[in-house]
């Protein structure tokens, strides 16, 4: 049971990571990050039910709150990006490295 849940979590995480690395559209990159976060949450809940401890669910709420905060910051960046550069392509703003 736990093993199945962990395998699903791993698949979700790798999907998310692959999406993050492959997509250039910043909206999809955000979606990919959300998927990775949910994969991590799923792993915590699976572990919590395996040892019958509440910690896993506590960690899920923690990640939920964290994801909300992350989404608000990331959406703000996204808005600025599309506003100033008229694009949602993350690579198009690579000159910001300096």
């Amino acid at each position: 049971m736990t093993a199945h849940a962990l395998i699903v979590a791993m698949i979700l995480f790798v999907l998310g990571l692959a999406g993050l690395l492959a997509r250039r559209n910043i909206v999809y990159m955000l979606l990919s990050i959300e998927i990775m976060l949910n994969a991590a949450s799923l792993a915590f809940i699976a572990a919590g039910s395996r040892w019958a401890a509440p910690d896993g669910q506590v960690m899920f709420f923690f990640i939920l709150a964290f994801a909300a905060a992350e989404a608000s910051v990331a959406l703000a960046i996204l808005l600025q990006l599309s506003d100033r550069f008229r694009t949602v392509d993350a690579d198009a703003v690579s000159e910001m490295r300096h």
Partner: peptide, 14 residues
């Protein structure tokens, strides 16, 4: 290594 491309950074973190 400082390319400015966020995906590179994400890959290096991973």
């Amino acid at each position: 290594t400082q390319t400015g491309q966020v995906r590179w950074y994400a890959a290096s973190v991973a």
